[in-house]
Each structure stands twice: as C-alpha cells, then as structure tokens.
Simulated scan of single mutants.
Amino acid sequence: MNFSPVIENKRVRLEPLQEDHLEVLLPLALEPSLWTVGANHIASREDLEKYIRAAIAERNAGTAIPFVIYDRQVQQIAGSTRYAGLTLPHKRTEIGYTWINPELQGSGLNKAMKYAMLQYAFEVMDLNRVEFKTDELNMQSRNAILSIGCTQEGILRRHMITSQGRVRNTVYFSMLKEEWPEVKQRIFGKYDF
C-alpha cells in the first residue's frame, strides 16, 4: 500500500502532507471560521505543528493518508484533507479532516477533491466502503456530503467533545464500492475533472 500517493485531476492535486507545509498552511489554518464547528481547533503555529505531526504519525502507523490540497485553478495550496481511520483488513476508510480556504469554498474545489479521493479509494485502493462524518450542527458539510451521492446512515448521540468543550452529535455517511459506478456517472459525470 502506498501511504504517500499523489492524487490529481484537472482541478486539484493532493500531495502528501509534510512538516515543511507548515508555513504555507499557517495563514489558512489561522482562519477562525474554519474551526467554529468541528472536533479540531487551530489557533496558533504550535496547534498546526501538533496537527501536522499527528497526521504524519498516523500515516507512519498505516491508519491515515494525509494530504495538502493544491488548487490548480488558482495555483495555490488551499488546505488539507485525509483518508483517516484506514482499516485495510476491512477495506474501509474515512474521508475527513478537510479544511479549505474560505475564499475557495463553493468554487467546485471540494467536489473535484472528493471525486479524486473516491475514485482512488474504490478504483486503486480497492476499498469496499468510504465513510464521512460531521457535526450534526455543520449543515454546510452535511449538504456537501449528500451532494456527492453519499447515504446518511445515522446520528451518534453525544459522540464527541469538541475543542470548545461542547458535546456533539455526529452524523455518519457512507458510500459503498457497489454504489460508486452509478454515483460516478450520475453526480460527477457532468464535470470535467
């Protein structure tokens, strides 16, 4: 298994997250609006250093594949995402820990990125299941997940404590390998990624 792939299409290139991405990610990561809803919170250089080190440690342990997001349209690093909770014996992963420059939200970047990641997960990694989860209060994320053809599976009540101390309910979504060909054609077929 390649834990440092480069995944790309016409709109986006996902590159392995490295410690030297700290400087380019820092101005984006310090945008407070990215952390109003969610389990993580980055408010300082030290927070981002810890976040990157933890992501790399998970990659080294074989449980995650973290990326920086490069937007080819604007030719700049736009944020970070990862395959998380990677469980190869059960052929599943989660796509998550996604944060994108607010100026690029709604630009089609997220959809192009999710397409690239789903395609790689099902067609290269040969996984059976890709999961997504988000805070019940994060309607923007919930709607985005539904818009790419995922199925809402349920809500885990009082599932996590956010970085702000709020006890959150978590909404789970998934896509299955058998669903991917139809979703690929129906949802993503109209885009030129």
Rank of each mutant, 00 (worst) to 15 (best):
Asn128Phe: 13
Met139Asn: 12
Val12Phe: 05
Thr63Cys: 12
Gly189Tyr: 09
Thr170His: 05
Asn110Trp: 04
Arg157Trp: 02
Ala57Arg: 11
Thr93Cys: 15
Pro32Cys: 03
Glu23Thr: 08
His159Tyr: 10
Asn110Val: 01
Ala54Gly: 12
Glu131Ile: 04
Arg129Trp: 04
His41Met: 15
Pro102Gly: 01
Thr93Ala: 12
His41Phe: 11
Ser33Leu: 14
Arg82Tyr: 06
Met160Trp: 11
Glu23Leu: 03
Glu179Val: 02
Arg11Glu: 08
Phe132Trp: 11
Tyr172Asn: 08
Asp135Lys: 06
Ile187Lys: 10
Thr151Val: 13
Met139Tyr: 07
Ala64Phe: 10
Ala57Pro: 02
Pro16Asn: 08
Asn9Leu: 02
Asn9Arg: 09
Gly149Met: 06
Ser80Lys: 07
Ile145Val: 11
Phe193Pro: 03
Asp71Cys: 07
Val74Trp: 09
Arg142Thr: 03
Val124Asp: 15
Phe3Trp: 10
Met113Asp: 01
Ser44Ala: 03
Leu109Thr: 07
Arg72Asp: 09
Gln18Asn: 11
Trp180Leu: 08
Asp126Pro: 05
Asn110Ser: 10
Ala64Tyr: 12
Ser174Cys: 08
Lys111Pro: 03
Gly189Ala: 11
Ile77His: 09
Met125Pro: 00
Leu14Arg: 00
Asn9Tyr: 03
Trp35Ala: 05
